[in-house]
């Protein structure tokens, strides 16, 4: 995990167990309102998980992109 002034890069590529949602949960725990989390993953299950996570926690998914098997999700922390 790489943090620079409110923007955290979470590289979860190649992690399937416990997986990207674990890394997101760790980043969320360390975040504050206004922070942006950029999550990289290869596990396709990440899209549904992040949607469910955002719905539950009330945080905002800014974008979800997929290219060459790499999924990039940008999340803005609006609630903590």
């Amino acid at each position: 995990m790489n943090q620079t002034s409110g923007r955290t890069l979470v590289d979860s590529r190649g992690s399937s167990c416990p997986g990207p949602i674990t890394d997101l949960a760790i980043a969320y725990r360390r975040s504050k309102v206004g922070d942006v989390i950029e999550l990289w993953a290869t596990d396709p299950g990440v899209k549904a998980d992040v949607n469910a996570w955002a719905a539950k926690t009330g945080n905002e998914i800014v974008s979800v992109d997929e290219a060459g098997g790499k999924i990039t999700v940008i999340i803005r922390i609006t609630k903590r």
Partner: peptide, 12 residues
Amino acid sequence: TPYPRPYSAEPM
């Protein structure tokens, strides 16, 4: 659990 489901990895 902090995960979206009881076991984090879906197949399990």
